[in-house]
Design a protein around this nucleic acid. Structure first.
Lengths: 247, 247
DNA sequence: CGCCGGATTGAAGGTACTCAATCCGTGTGG
DNA sequence: CCACACGGATTGAGTACCTTCAATCCGGCG
């Protein structure tokens, strides 16, 4: 049952991005790795399949689940979080359309974090053993997979830098700029967007409390850097927001 | 799934897993991936070679360098760090014998961090294109390589949890326990060891200032948890140190 | 309408930082 | 051989930033 607004919206996206192809997910442009032939795309499509119907709060997988597949986000968005036995939780990332999640589970063959939908979402499941087999046959796919994993490592390093050496408002500015870039890469506005996550979730991701996030938003607004009303954000002064990070 | 040690920054290295073989580096036992035949080991050895003579402070690679190879540490130890334009630096990891560094560079084909020797060290260079070619032929090597990359992602998630939600002394306790496990995995004492890094480097890694590290060491010593004299550490009460993390 | 969760704002408090003095071990030069 | 300098480490005092606790606001929904 095709819902309006999902599959028919083709979003122009920079073609060089590192995403696994998934044409039955209608994400060919987003996901197309450089240099894959039609036939090879076909093979990739054959091993993957779409899973629909995730609603806000639904788990795509949980920490401890047996690892079977990677997932390419086809629509919507997710957060990943690790839980500590004492109840503390740390959001480790927010993933949006075209991004791959589940890479953490390869090492132990069990997932090490939870993946939770932030809104109505669909994913494209990529069984990992089939993906490995295919990447042995297609070197460009192999390299592509390695790049995706490496890119995740680089991303994590960036978050470590943020958590380890930035003050609260710098962290939030860096976060907003990161969202801005990722929206822009999907052909959406880099300056006007809806946050899909709560203040608490942003705080967890940035190593801060929700009140601190709220205050920082208010302060940015007073300074004329952004306009924010609950979850809708407009960046008014992108250059100044940039210069604010690492000031 | 979640045993004590679950949230440690780096997981213990069980000797039979997750290391690329490197017999000309004398690391066969540590590095041997499960299920590689003698002949396959031979092939791996043929593509790799030893590089000697790194002294404390020497760079194995720098941020921006063209990516050619991964490196398995054969002797000694390294730190990896990312630098921010304003001069801030963040240590992203300390690597010891048998661990693989350079994975960050695959995504952009340029290194995104510096790798600096902490003491006299030797590495085994693994040209990445040859490693990829070999892993297409040897599925168990392919899986092994994927696990190494995934493990790095999991490690980074652990550091994010640490940086995002632990207080200073918890961070240091987690750090010491992590070192302890990794020394134990190498047949060294889990309770008595020499730190190879300065207070400042530990602080950078843990998102704290060097004075805070020093105070936390002193406090642990007053509490009878450890005995510390500059860089030589003895853990006196491992269980209590464990329970201290996530208290 | 009233409830609920999320968000905002205020005030007080605590943790880690900053600045600074001192100590200590190592290496160097008189 | 000792004096001295140097960098790393330790310790103290005052401060800044973020957290904690609390009250209030706001929008959605039964």
């Amino acid at each position: 049952m095709k819902q309006p607004g999902y599959l028919d919206v083709q979003r122009p996206v920079s073609p060089s991005r590192l995403k696994i192809a998934c044409s039955n997910c209608n994400l060919r442009e987003l996901c197309l790795p450089v240099g894959l032939s039609e036939g090879e795309m076909q093979q990739l499509d054959e091993i993957s399949h779409l899973k629909r119907g995730y609603a806000r709060g639904d788990y795509l997988y949980r920490s401890g689940d047996k690892f079977q597949s990677l997932y390419a986000i086809h629509s919507g968005s997710f957060k990943t979080q690790v839980l500590h036995e004492d109840g503390r939780e740390q959001v480790t990332g927010f993933q949006m359309v075209g991004e791959i999640i589940g890479l953490d589970a390869i090492s132990t063959e069990h997932h090490t974090c939870d993946a939770v939908a932030l809104e109505d979402s669909e994913v494209c499941e990529l069984p990992f053993d089939k993906l490995e087999a295919l990447s042995r046959e297609i070197p460009s796919l192999q390299r592509h997979l390695h790049k995706i994993m490496s890119r995740e490592i680089v991303r994590d390093q960036g978050i470590m830098l943020l958590l380890g050496s930035m003050r609260a408002e710098e962290r939030l500015a860096a976060f907003l700029l990161n969202l801005s870039q990722r929206f822009a890469a999907r052909g959406l506005s880099p300056t006007q967007f809806q946050l899909r996550m709560s203040r608490r979730e942003i705080g967890s991701y940035l190593g801060l409390k929700l009140e601190t996030i709220s205050r920082a938003f208010s302060h940015f607004q007073e300074d004329g850097l952004i306009s924010v009303k609950v979850r809708s954000v407009e960046i008014l002064d992108l250059p100044r927001l940039h210069s604010f990070v690492g000031k």
